[in-house]
Simulated scan of single mutants.
Amino acid sequence: MLEKVFTTQSKIEAMGIKHLLEEEGIELQYIDKTDRSYAGLFGYIEIRVDESDKEKASSLIDSYFEKE
């Protein structure tokens, strides 16, 4: 079962997290629920991973934001 580990309105932020998780071998589902008519004003992007990878993915995401 897939678990949501990250949500954002920023495509740049979402792509950074997507690449980070993929580099660590974590398979994910990238769901873009933004309204293309209003470039980032409405909707969000969601990243989901298998529940067995949720803890590792969450830790990697936390580390990603600590560096900024």
Results as ranks from 00 to 15, higher is better:
15 M>T: 10
68 E>Q: 14
39 A>Q: 13
3 E>G: 05
36 R>Y: 01
30 Y>D: 01
5 V>M: 07
35 D>E: 09
37 S>T: 03
66 E>T: 11
2 L>Q: 13
66 E>L: 15
36 R>E: 08
48 R>W: 12
29 Q>Y: 12
41 L>N: 11
6 F>K: 02
33 K>D: 04
22 E>M: 10
8 T>V: 03
32 D>Q: 05
64 Y>F: 15
36 R>F: 06
68 E>I: 15
51 E>W: 10
48 R>N: 07
31 I>K: 08
57 A>I: 05
59 S>R: 15
50 D>T: 06
11 K>Y: 14
34 T>D: 03
67 K>Y: 13
49 V>A: 03
10 S>F: 06
52 S>E: 10
40 G>V: 02
52 S>A: 12
46 E>L: 07
13 E>K: 13
65 F>I: 04
63 S>T: 09
53 D>E: 05
42 F>K: 07
34 T>F: 06
44 Y>A: 07
4 K>P: 00
47 I>R: 07
49 V>T: 02
17 I>W: 06
34 T>A: 07
16 G>I: 13
24 E>Y: 07
55 E>W: 08
9 Q>S: 11
52 S>H: 11
1 M>V: 10
21 L>H: 03
41 L>C: 09
19 H>F: 14
23 E>V: 02
20 L>I: 00
33 K>A: 09
47 I>F: 12
8 T>H: 03
45 I>L: 09
20 L>H: 02
57 A>F: 08
65 F>Q: 06
16 G>T: 12
23 E>Q: 09
62 D>C: 10
52 S>P: 01
55 E>T: 11
58 S>C: 10
18 K>D: 04
59 S>I: 11
27 E>R: 06
65 F>E: 04
13 E>P: 00
30 Y>A: 05
36 R>I: 00
25 G>E: 02
53 D>A: 07
50 D>E: 12
64 Y>P: 02
18 K>W: 07
6 F>S: 04
43 G>S: 06
39 A>P: 00
56 K>V: 04
64 Y>N: 06
37 S>P: 00
12 I>S: 12
12 I>H: 13
14 A>G: 08
27 E>N: 05
13 E>N: 08
40 G>S: 05
42 F>M: 09
37 S>R: 15
36 R>T: 00
1 M>W: 14
41 L>M: 15
38 Y>G: 01
28 L>G: 01
13 E>W: 08
